[in-house]
């Protein structure tokens, strides 16, 4: 493990680092042990609290609910990409009547809390949209607006000569955008899009506040039953599943970006790729 921040350590430093390592491990392990002990003695993670995992019918219910959540997330992501493309194009338009409303829409939905949006849309339109529709539309408005900015940045990052070449062979602005800039931008934007998928999937969990029968709501039904009464155990299971899915998606984004950099940069600069990607998904992931 090398870093520019510290030297390949010599014997003295190694000894010092070892002391730190031992001390650090002790503190961290002691802290974790204390937490686990507390959880155990308070009866939050004793075997009976996990017994729901041995009930086939409950596992099936959780699985179905997870599918509903993934289903909602998938629709939301597809709609967000479409919404993002339309509004990115709108914001890049030279016609003020198109540009200004696009800017307004994008900036509004990026600044408003998603939950407020979900509450509002559910309260006003749930008779036509239902819980699923309200959730998906809210996610689309929010994630779509974020993606619109990602797309816009991507399109602007395509070298100018590309567009000029397009105009030179007689394409109009729409054609240049559609046929030249966008295909190149999408490729470079893929990691950011996947990071946004992680965000969308996490946000789908908010569906439980409007009783969308998703993963979190199913979990809630389990731990609220007097039979189990185990919010911590269920919470850990819910978190673990989300972490597994989202972590895989993040890895995919890092891999894609790494491959792209490698393609573009040739042999050099491999060291920096991983770290920059992590920085990007930290930004979009908040």
């Amino acid at each position: 493990m090398s870093s520019v921040l510290f030297e390949e350590p010599g014997p003295k430093t190694r000894a010092r680092h070892r002391t730190w390592a031992v001390l650090g491990s002790i503190v961290i392990l002691a802290f974790l042990a204390l937490v686990i002990l507390k959880l155990w003695t308070e009866g939050a993670i004793t075997p009976d609290k996990w017994s729901f995992l041995t009930m086939p019918s409950i596992l099936l219910g959780l699985f179905e609910a997870l599918l509903s959540t993934l289903f909602a997330a998938a629709i939301a992501i597809v709609l967000s990409v479409v919404f993002g493309l339309i509004f990115a194009a709108g914001r890049l338009s030279r016609v003020a009547v198109i540009r200004w409303p696009s800017i307004l829409v994008i900036e509004f939905f990026r600044a408003v809390p998603l939950l407020l949006l979900i509450f509002f849309i559910f309260l006003v339109y749930s008779d036509v949209l239902g819980a699923l529709g309200s959730l998906v539309i809210s996610l689309m408005l929010y994630n779509g607006s974020v993606l619109a900015e990602v797309f816009r940045a991507g399109i602007l990052a395509v070298p100018k000569g590309q567009a000029e070449a397009g105009y030179a062979i007689g394409m109009n602005r729409g054609q240049v955008l559609r046929l030249i800039q966008l295909p190149q931008a999408i490729r470079t934007m893929l990691p950011a899009i996947i990071s946004q998928c992680v965000v969308a999937l996490k946000d789908t969990a908010l569906g439980f506040t409007i009783a969308y029968p998703g993963f979190v709501r199913e979990g809630e039904l389990i731990f609220t039953s007097t039979l189990y009464n185990n919010p911590i155990a269920v919470g850990i299971v819910l978190a673990a599943v989300f972490i597994a899915i989202n972590y895989s998606l993040s890895r995919l984004a890092v891999y894609l970006e790494g491959r792209q950099r490698a393609k573009m940069a040739g042999q050099q600069g491999m060291d920096q790729t991983a770290s920059t990607t992590e920085a990007t998904d930290a930004n979009t992931g908040a």
């Binding site: 729901f52 009930m55 019918s57 409950i58 099936l60 219910g61 009783a211 199913e218 039904l221 389990i222 609220t224 039953s225 039979l227 189990y228």
Partner: peptide, 11 residues
């Protein structure tokens, strides 16, 4: 989700 009135026991 309302015990006693209308409630779906988990599973």
């Amino acid at each position: 989700d309302q015990p006693g009135l209308g409630f779906m026991p988990p599973g």
